[in-house]
Amino acid sequence: MESEALHTTAPGGGPAVYLFVTCLADLLRPSVAFNSIKLLEDAGCRVTVPLQQTCCGQPAYNTGDYKSIIPLARQVVAMLEPADYVVLPSGSCAGMICHHYPALLKDEWHERALQVAAKTFEITTFLSDIVKAKRPERPPIPLPPITYHDSCAGLRELGIKEQPRQLLQEFCDTQVSELQQSEVCCGFGGTFCAKMPEISGKMVQDKLHNAAATGAGILAGGDLGCLLNIAGRARREGVAIEVRHITELLCGDLDGPAIGEGE
């Protein structure tokens, strides 16, 4: 029956991790989800992909439509409850579940949301802090110089800063060339980028130029929203920098086109 989750069991019988792939990875960048499964399995987790998952509801929530989101938030909480851990390849979606669901839901659902929040992690945090993932038995993946975009929600709601850098060091033996103004927003902001495109355009232009100024060949990040924004601007301006999700780098999945690039 389709409403039930599919189970992929890795050897070792590790913790049961539910992967919330996020809507952007589902729709636009499935490799992020496949690489997340691989990373989690390599780290000894039993990975479950709940099949009834869609979107965490940030678009409507951030626009202020709380009423529409409450039933969706409950549905997501109920779906994730059986997990030992919930992992998402996105700081902003993880922040939504960890911080905004409990704030939005009341009474019994508030408690249930808090319990799910307590076991929910963004993927680099989970790999680095919870399961302390090590590079599988293989040589480090060689990478061109890379720079890293800290997404705002990951950075400020979840405190993600060192984890992706540690993983890049561990898995790829690579250090990040830090970009100037690294803690300033790229201008994505969910519906903001479509509601106020000119301002968003100025912000992403600044971000892209700061990234290009590092001389890095790859800009990596943990949130597809930001990455689609920056990659789209790079394509528009003809700036040659590959934009990729960190899970792709950690798995050495670099053969396919980067975000926004043709086949």
Partner: peptide, 19 residues
């Protein structure tokens, strides 16, 4: 709104759920 300032990256293939 999006495309006035940047290209819209194409999907990588079918959706993850389908695959």
């Amino acid at each position: 709104g999006w495309t006035s300032q940047r290209d819209f990256p194409s999907p990588q293939g079918r959706t993850f759920m389908q695959q």
